[in-house]
């Protein structure tokens, strides 16, 4: 299981960073990139490394939408919340996903097949609103289209 505190790759990753508080965000970003989410063990290890309390680290991490605290699902759905997408109704897409799989941003469905994330602009504003499923970009989406997309994946 990734993210265990005993995980040697986590230890070597931490070793690359100094113990200054400024390293917190970059460190969290790299841990997430490596392990795909921030486990309680990883948060604790980061806290210990920077001599912070894990409550501090968790507080900072939950402030940013980019961090997740549960492992991503088999299929990872990202909905753009950038200005362009927002104006063109990305909220409806989020709602549609919530309705069809019953998860909120930051969550993973119980069977582990889907996870949902809200992200800031992908730089594909021309295609707004944008949904990315497993790194494949889908443009000009609607709630219905997203729902179909999900059904196709199944």
């Amino acid at each position: 299981m990734p993210g265990q505190s005993t995980d040697s790759s986590l230890i070597s990753l931490l070793a690359e960073y100094g113990k200054e508080r400024e390293n917190l965000i970059p460190l969290l970003q790299e841990v997430q990139e490596r392990f795909q989410f921030l486990s309680p063990e990883a948060v604790r290890a980061v806290a210990d490394h920077l001599d912070l309390s894990e409550n501090d680290v968790y507080g900072v991490a939950t402030f940013y939408a980019q961090f997740r605290f549960v492992p991503p699902g088999l299929h990872h759905i990202k909905v753009c919340e950038g200005t362009a997408c927002h104006v063109r109704g990305s909220d409806h897409i989020l709602e549609a996903v919530e309705r069809s799989i019953g998860i909120k941003p930051g969550q993973t469905s119980e069977d582990g097949s889907y996870s949902l994330e809200r992200v800031a602009c992908f730089g594909s504003c021309a295609l707004a609103p944008v949904v990315v499923v497993d790194d494949k970009v889908h443009g000009r989406m609607t709630g219905n289209k997203t729902q179909k997309l999900i059904e196709e994946e199944e």
């Binding site: 309390s53 409550n55 968790y58 939950t62």
Partner: peptide
Amino acid sequence: GKPAINIIHR
């Protein structure tokens, strides 16, 4: 020193 609580979420 290390707080047992903090502001979480946003």
